[in-house]
Amino acid sequence: MGRAIVITSGKGGVGKTTTTANLGTALAQLGHSVVLVDADIGLRNLDVVMGLENRIVYHVVDAIKGKCTVQKALIKDRRLENLWLLPASQTDDKDAVTPDDMRTLVFELKLQYDFVIIDCPAGIEQGFKNAIAGADEAIVVATPEVSSIRDADRVVGLLSAADVPARLVVNRISPALVKRGDMLSQSDVIEILALEMLGAIPLDDQVIATTNKGVPAVLEGKSLAAREFIRIAKVLSGLEVEAEKSVGFFTRIGRALGLSATPA
């Protein structure tokens, strides 16, 4: 039986889709069978980020409504054998499916795949409720900004009300800005959100570049962000103890960016 993980945030634009694409790809690279589910119905992006938008024939609403089997709607990744995408519909909106529909769908996918990664839309309304239905756990993505943290806190409250355990990924963190006092630090974020920390993705231009090309950053594997995604994937698959690694990693970021004494 596979695991269903929903990537959520509350706030839009903090990196949920990028995280879904990169984590999914990294897990597939580690040898697991992975299916990515785009739950952002009406505003689909996961297919673009994965570079598979030209291959969509059927989508998740089709599969739920019974127009096709789930198998027919799944798209195999261009590069990796064991990575699949279930795209969202662009022409429907979030009321097209119900939480129960999603629960059934996700359960069916869990029977066939090691990991079911669900890309949650921004907000806390129907789309959010649909996306978390059927999830075993959640990864909350937040950037070190007050508005993002506020929304993430709201989402964590809703997740705990729904009995979905959550962990935190801090995205787009800049050690230089943290050092200058212009950005909240990793520990500031954790202090407010009071969540178990999974990882911290540094602000990385590589990610933007590769996203636009439809190539997840972990496929190149060299950038700092890519390495952190890969490390998180290892943690998710139970391969690595994260605590000691985090400290060393931050120092490495600092040094790579040319800072002599970087705070952990």
């Binding site: 929304d151 806190d153 709201r154 964590v156 409250g157 407010i192």
Partner: peptide, 24 residues
């Protein structure tokens, strides 16, 4: 606690919270 953003915690009587009450 913590009492998360968006949560309304009501009680008739005295209220003790062990933890933070987050903004919102």
């Amino acid at each position: 606690g913590p009492v998360r953003s968006g949560v309304i915690l009501e009680h008739e009587g005295h209220l003790f919270i062990f933890g933070d009450v987050n903004p919102g």
